[in-house]
Design a protein around this nucleic acid. Structure first.
Lengths: 98, 98
DNA sequence: ATTTTTGTTCGTGTTTTTACGAACAACTAG
DNA sequence: CTAGTTGTTCGTAAAAACACGAACAAAAAT
């Protein structure tokens, strides 16, 4: 077994891909990438999961850097993290050669 | 909590993304998408994992439909699954709007 | 000062993922 | 027939992902 050949870029794409690797999270990302923002409650109404589970998925997307949350008491407004979203677009574009 | 709003396309992209969601698998996919084919042994030499673990990752990629293996005794030649790779390209392109 | 609203966090349990080494399978070479 | 080569599968273990309900937190409304 040789030395590590895996690049930082590959790690980054893998990290983003992992965050995208669940239907619920894909749904959220697709929605946010279209309209840029929404409230957690709106998602909760549409999706077949309890709010605590949704909260976990949003946390996962946040920790991957793909979204960000802003408190607007008593609600939380979630938006695409534009900077990282752009990076993800770029990385996937390169990777997929599209 | 409302009805299931998640589309089949979102499930498909999530499935592909999940398969891409590990650095080792990203490495393999990127290599195969460039040169179309390679032997398992070549990968094993380059990557910092034991062969059984590599075999598991290849199995995962295969079950996601992104690669396919062909026995060339005593070796196994792995290639991109062109049809599904094209579908993945298409789906990500749509999803990322790139 | 309560109650209500909106989400997060915590505790729990189940399932899946990841990784390793040993054992096995299939075919070739000596 | 016995080595050797190349990968897969099996057995195992540890970590992470996923989902739920209960409890909690923060601010607004009554």
């Amino acid at each position: 077994m040789g030395k590590e050949q895996i690049t930082e870029e590959q790690k980054k794409v893998a990290r983003y891909a992992k965050a995208m690797g669940h239907p619920i999270r894909m749904y959220v990302l697709e929605l946010l990438s279209k309209q840029s923002c929404c409230y957690s409650g709106d998602l909760s109404e549409e999706l077949p999961i309890v709010k605590s589970t949704l909260s976990q998925h949003l946390k996962e997307l946040k920790s991957a850097g793909l979204i960000q949350g802003e408190i607007e008491t008593p609600r939380v407004k979630y938006c695409i993290n534009k900077e990282n979203w752009a990076e993800a677009q770029q990385l996937f574009k390169q990777f997929l050669k599209i």
